[in-house]
Write a protein that binds this DNA or RNA. Structure first.
Length: 257
DNA sequence: ATGGTTGGGGGCCAA
C-alpha cells in the first residue's frame, strides 16, 4: 500500500497535480477552501472514491482521498481554535490513519508575545496527549511545520531562532517522539547525517540551486508496523511542477493489506 | 540585517 502526504497550498489550484502522485491514499493539508469547493469530481476521475475532508474558508483544511474504503472518520481539534487541522480514518485492515496540519506559528519565536506560536505549542501538547492515549496500530502524518533534527534544515545554526527549528519546538517534538516510541519513516530510510527536506520557500529565485530546504512533512508509524515498511520517497521534482506548492509529497510504501 | 513569494479574499492576513 502506498500512502502519501502533501501540503497542496490550495486544492482548487493544484488538484490536477495529484494525478502525478502514485499512491492508494493521499492525505492533503491546506486545501484553503470550504467543503463545497473541494474539486471532488477531479479526484473521482483519478480513482479516489473514498474521500473525507474538513474544509475551512481561506485557511487550513485537511482531507483523506482514498482508493480503498475507509471507516470511523474522526475530525478532532487540538490547541483550542477549532481550525480544520485534523482528520483520521480507519483503513480496511484496522490501522488508523491520522492526517495533521500543525500550525505554522508565525514569525516571532516567543509565545509570550506571539499568540500564533503559543497556539502551535499548545497544539503539539494536546496532540501529544491524544497520541499517548491511543492503542493499536496507527499511521500519523502530515505537515508538522517542525524540522526536528539538525539535518532536517539547510543550516542548523542559522535557523535556531526561526520558527520550525527553534529548540522549544524541536525539543517538544523530540519528547513526543521519544515518549511514543514510534518510527519516523523518512529517517528510517534516510541516515540522520544526511540532509532531508520536503519544503523549499517560495522566496528564493532558484529553489534547487539555493537548496535552503526544511523537512516539515512527516510520516510516523507505530513500532508494530516497522517491519512492514518497504520504501519511502520524497517527490522533490514536484517543486518544479507548474505553479508548484512550496511543499512536495512524501510517500511511503508499506506491506499491509 | 533585510527582504524575498504565494494564495485567498476583499480593502491584508497567513504561510
Amino acid at each position: 500500500m502506498r500512502i502519501a502526504t502533501w501540503n497542496i497550498n490550495s486544492i482548487r489550484l493544484r488538484a490536477h497535480h495529484i494525478a502525478n502522485i502514485d499512491a492508494d491514499i493521499i492525505c492533503i493539508q491546506e486545501m484553503k477552501c470550504q467543503d463545497a469547493e473541494v474539486p471532488i469530481s477531479q479526484l473521482e476521475e483519478m480513482g479516489f472514491h473514498h474521500n473525507h475532508y474538513r474544509g475551512q474558508k481561506a485557511y487550513n483544511g485537511v482531507g483523506i482521498f482514498s482508493k480503498l474504503p475507509l471507516s470511523e472518520v474522526e475530525m478532532l481539534d487540538f490547541g483550542g481554535n477549532d481550525q480544520a487541522r485534523h482528520i483520521s480514518a480507519k483503513l480496511p485492515n484496522g490501522v488508523r490513519l491520522h492526517n495533521f496540519y500543525i500550525p505554522a506559528g508565525g514569525d516571532e519565536p516567543d509565545p509570550a508575545i506571539n499568540a500564533s506560536f503559543a497556539h502551535k505549542l499548545q497544539y503539539v501538547d494536546d496532540m501529544t496527549d491524544y497520541l499517548k492515549s491511543l492503542s493499536g496500530s496507527h499511521i500519523i502524518l502530515g505537515d508538522f511545520n517542525i524540522a526536528p533534527f539538525e539535518h532536517d534544515v539547510w543550516s542548523h545554526k542559522q535557523l535556531l531562532k526561526v520558527i520550525s527549528h527553534t529548540p522549544i519546538e524541536t525539543e517538544k517534538l523530540a519528547r513526543t517522539y521519544k515518549t511514543l516510541g514510534w518510527v519516523d519513516v523518512s529517517r528510517h530510510f534516510v541516515p540522520m547525517d544526511e540532509k532531508c527536506y520536503s519544503w523549499w520557500s517560495y522566496r528564493n529565485r532558484d529553489w534547487r540551486k539555493s537548496n535552503r530546504g526544511r523537512r516539515l512533512d512527516h510520516i510516523w508509524v507505530t513500532p508494530d508496523l516497522k517491519e512492514n515498511l518497504i520504501n519511502h520517497q520524497i517527490l522533490a521534482d514536484a517543486r518544479d511542477w507548474e505553479k508548484p506548492s512550496d511543499h512536495v509529497p512524501v510517500i511511503m510504501e508499506i506491506d499491509i493489506s
